[in-house]
Design a protein around this nucleic acid. Structure first.
Lengths: 161, 161
DNA sequence: GTCAGTGCAAACTTTTTGCAACTAC
DNA sequence: GTAGTTGCAAAAAGTTTGCACTGAC
């Protein structure tokens, strides 16, 4: 459960962003932001569309894409591209985390490491000002590893016959 | 220029991979691998298709997608999803590098940092066996930053009038 | 000879665009 | 009133799939 406080804060930040950029503060934009901050973890535009429809605030896909682009620019959400569809997640008052991605089943797990985070955030680059980052660690999750071991043993058994 | 030695080695590795998996070793698959190892830096399937066409070895998009999937599984290439199209790059005998991505113009720069690489690669995760990783650092490149400063100054000037 | 792999085209999915209607300013 | 924003539908872009033909084993 996300606190009302966070929702109010991000709404205020979004308002300030839109004023700075001379954009119109529409109901739809606030509704998209609020829907996003009610979601824990990753979501794609389809998820968001369905969630808002269920909450009886239907907005078109075009508007969702438009608003998501603004929220990205305002640094209120971050974008990930794990597979073919873009995934997003809220990022205000959320710990920066790293992603473990199983190359076999596609499962994404989040892990935090303060040490690693500090190392990356304190890096300086020539001709580049860092705002944020994403670390994707690929490998095999434990359930796929076990499944592979079982499969291999089965094959060896068959070959012996 | 990629040495012939590397090309021969990856061909051999791919051959072994296909034999292990009981896959057919076709001309098309070797041609795709060789084309990929002639490319420096990132490419997408479109680039690869055009390159091969120019080299008078036309293969269908379907075959390219098929072969690229095998090469990913064989760990002979890695996949990136910076924008909407998937980008790939060869990864045998190539230094692991990190990517700086400008959120404004989309330009991708590669940087290496042995210290960071060691930090990430030496990390242990519960229930997860790491094979490789991608680090994407987002921010503003120096040319966009300069352009923004100019733009801002111009605006302030106009406002004063 | 068999069947995995290929080329081609159609289908599918995700995202972008064009346009009329609407509404924040 | 004006122009940015929305909804809708059509288009575009990237990737996958179905099917007949080919060629690796």
């Amino acid at each position: 459960m996300v606190s009302q406080e966070v929702r109010d804060t991000v709404k205020q930040l979004f308002r300030e962003y839109m004023e700075r950029r001379h954009l119109r503060k529409t109901m739809e934009r606030y509704a998209v932001l609020d829907a996003i901050y009610s979601i824990e973890g990753h979501f794609d535009v389809e998820d968001l569309y369905k969630l808002m429809e269920k909450a009886h605030f239907r907005v078109s896909m075009g508007t969702i894409y438009n608003t998501v682009a603004l929220l990205l620019d305002a640094h209120l959400i971050v974008k990930h591209q794990f597979g073919m569809t873009a995934q997003y997640e809220k990022c205000y008052s959320c710990e920066t985390h790293h992603h473990l991605i199983c190359t076999q089943c596609g499962k994404v797990t989040e892990v935090t490491s303060k040490a690693l985070r500090n190392t990356i955030e304190s890096m300086k680059f020539r001709n580049f000002t860092q705002t944020h980052y994403s670390l994707y660690v690929y490998g095999i999750c434990v359930s796929c590893k076990r499944a592979n071991t079982r499969k291999l043993k089965k094959q060896q058994k068959t070959n012996k016959k």
